[in-house]
Nucleic acid binder design. Structure first.
Length: 173
DNA sequence: CCCTGATTCGC
DNA sequence: GCGAATCAGG
């Protein structure tokens, strides 16, 4: 059954829409097999489209941000995600997530913009994150600094190298 | 991938 | 007029 757009349904639609509800939410509330596309289509036909550009940040009201008092800085580097190979490393698919680690130097300072030719290109952090950077220390072995070169250019593992690898890698995770 | 609204177009 | 499919963006 498709009630179509009866007056009260349209009324509810207007109300909810102007209330700041998203199309999908409205569709859900109206029920009756109405999809968000239907809602949006109707909204446009009704001429009440705009209202700002809600999108994601809209969990409820869109126009005004309650300006939540943030007491929690974006710290917590988050769980180290695995890093896809960014630089040519003889040993690919290393489940290594190079994290800042306690380093003497300023590791992870170089960004894609500032990364120079002779700077270590060992990726630091999540490549999809804005926090992403590179080691940046002086590159000696290939494109990596001494330290990271050791990890990148891992000598072929022996039979039971598995444990050994995990061992040597642990400190980089 | 999740979500958002906007547009198109056959019905 | 309707809305699924598609597009464009976060």
């Amino acid at each position: 059954m498709t009630p179509g757009w009866t007056e009260d349904r349209v009324g509810a639609l207007k109300k909810l829409w102007l209330e700041g509800q998203s199309a999908s939410q409205i569709a859900k509330q109206l029920g009756g097999g109405v999809t968000r596309n239907a809602v949006i289509g109707k909204v446009h036909r009704l001429g009440l489209s705009g209202r700002a550009t809600p999108s994601q940040p809209a969990r409820t009201a869109t126009t005004f941000r309650p300006a939540k008092t943030r007491t929690t800085p974006p710290v917590q580097p988050s769980a180290p995600r695995r890093i896809e190979a960014v630089a040519p490393a003889p040993r690919p698919n290393l489940p290594v997530a190079p994290t800042p680690e306690r380093a003497p130097d300023m590791v992870g300072t170089a960004t894609v913009m500032t990364l120079g030719a002779h700077m270590c290109k060992w990726p630091i952090g999540d490549p999809s994150s804005s926090e992403f950077s590179f080691c940046g220390r002086r590159a000696s072995e290939g494109v990596y600094c001494v330290e990271h070169a050791r990890v990148a250019y891992q000598p072929a593992l022996k039979k039971n190298g598995s444990t050994e690898l995990a061992r040597s890698l642990r400190r980089y995770i």
